Computed example of a mutant assay.
Amino acid sequence: MQIVLILSLVAAAIGSGLVAGIFFAFSTFIMTAFSRIPVEQAIAAMNSINVTIVRSPFMGLFVPTAILCLVIAVLAVIDWRSGASLLMLAGAALYVLASFISTIVFNVPMNDALAKVSGGGTEATALWTTYLRDWTWWNHVRTIASLLASVAFVRALMIL
């Protein structure tokens, strides 16, 4: 059981850290770059990313890390280890709720709405302005949550 727990924590720390890095890139420069180009080009670029990402290796990282976090939460409860289990539960909750579920509840519906718009008319401009602000805000949440999950998993490993 100990080796399964250690390997799970290492994989979850790496997975959530990599996801945090991807989200960090969007929060710190990709969305800013999109805000500086014409709306029609920004929408086309973001729509292209949204189509590409669901068929990319990112999904092979994002979804399995969420599943692994659920396994870690179960292991934390089954084999309670005080501080380590609390950190394991915190990391799992941060990743699953604030990174994975928030993506499904907030970012994906915004992506779906953006996919229905093209061009640079007033409707597209208004949607893009709202999208850019709201999508980026939720991306900041995902970035921070994924990073804190990674830190919690590393810290749990240190005190096991």
Rank of each mutant, 00 (worst) to 15 (best):
residue 56 S to R: 01
residue 56 S to I: 00
residue 96 V to D: 08
residue 43 I to W: 12
residue 97 L to C: 11
residue 67 I to W: 06
residue 13 A to M: 07
residue 144 I to Y: 06
residue 39 V to L: 07
residue 51 V to I: 00
residue 117 V to H: 11
residue 115 A to T: 02
residue 148 L to C: 05
residue 147 L to Y: 06
residue 36 R to D: 13
residue 46 M to D: 12
residue 111 N to G: 04
residue 40 E to S: 15
residue 77 V to C: 12
residue 37 I to S: 15
residue 129 T to M: 07
residue 58 F to C: 01
residue 71 V to W: 10
residue 33 A to C: 13
residue 151 V to A: 06
residue 78 I to D: 15
residue 139 N to D: 15
residue 30 I to T: 11
residue 146 S to M: 03
residue 152 A to Y: 03
residue 88 M to A: 12
residue 133 R to N: 15
residue 34 F to Y: 15
residue 30 I to Y: 15
residue 50 N to F: 02
residue 48 S to H: 04
residue 16 S to Y: 09
residue 49 I to H: 05
residue 35 S to W: 11
residue 155 R to V: 00
residue 42 A to T: 02
residue 51 V to C: 02
residue 150 S to G: 12
residue 5 L to F: 11
residue 143 T to R: 05
residue 6 I to D: 08
residue 89 L to Y: 14
residue 135 W to I: 02
residue 97 L to Y: 07
residue 10 V to C: 10
residue 78 I to L: 15
residue 7 L to S: 12
residue 93 A to N: 08
residue 60 G to E: 05
residue 143 T to N: 07
residue 63 V to E: 05
residue 156 A to C: 03
residue 20 A to G: 10
residue 7 L to G: 13
residue 10 V to Q: 10
residue 124 A to M: 06
residue 143 T to F: 07
residue 83 G to W: 09
residue 159 I to T: 02
residue 96 V to F: 07
residue 71 V to K: 04
residue 62 F to Q: 04
residue 72 I to E: 15
residue 61 L to S: 01
residue 105 V to Q: 09
residue 147 L to W: 04
residue 70 L to Y: 12
residue 97 L to N: 08
residue 29 F to T: 07
residue 42 A to G: 11
residue 68 L to N: 04
residue 43 I to C: 13
residue 8 S to P: 12
residue 145 A to D: 12
residue 39 V to H: 08
residue 105 V to C: 06
residue 63 V to S: 03
residue 11 A to N: 08
residue 117 V to E: 14
residue 23 F to K: 06
residue 38 P to S: 14
residue 131 Y to Q: 13
residue 31 M to V: 03
residue 64 P to R: 03
residue 45 A to Y: 03
residue 53 I to L: 03
residue 11 A to C: 09
residue 104 I to P: 08
residue 102 S to R: 01
residue 59 M to T: 00
residue 24 F to K: 06
residue 21 G to R: 03
residue 157 L to D: 04
residue 94 L to Y: 13
residue 46 M to N: 10
residue 99 S to N: 14
residue 128 W to Q: 13
residue 21 G to E: 07
residue 67 I to K: 01
residue 21 G to V: 00
residue 135 W to A: 08
residue 154 V to F: 02
residue 133 R to I: 04
residue 115 A to C: 08
residue 125 T to H: 10
residue 151 V to G: 05
residue 158 M to L: 03
residue 63 V to W: 04
residue 150 S to N: 05
residue 127 L to W: 07
residue 37 I to K: 11
residue 41 Q to R: 09
residue 82 S to G: 14
residue 74 V to S: 11
residue 117 V to D: 14
residue 115 A to Q: 13
residue 108 V to W: 06
residue 89 L to M: 12
residue 144 I to V: 05
residue 97 L to P: 10
residue 86 L to Y: 11
residue 65 T to N: 02
residue 128 W to M: 12
residue 96 V to N: 05
residue 12 A to M: 05
residue 127 L to A: 08
residue 148 L to K: 01
residue 76 A to I: 01
residue 43 I to Q: 14
residue 5 L to N: 13
residue 132 L to W: 03
residue 99 S to M: 09
residue 62 F to G: 04
residue 126 A to S: 13
residue 90 A to N: 09
residue 27 S to C: 10
residue 26 F to M: 06
residue 11 A to V: 02
residue 58 F to R: 01
residue 92 A to D: 10
residue 55 R to I: 00
residue 81 R to T: 05
residue 158 M to N: 09
residue 23 F to T: 03
residue 15 G to M: 06
residue 62 F to C: 02
residue 86 L to K: 04
residue 49 I to N: 06
residue 71 V to Q: 10
residue 158 M to A: 08
residue 24 F to A: 14
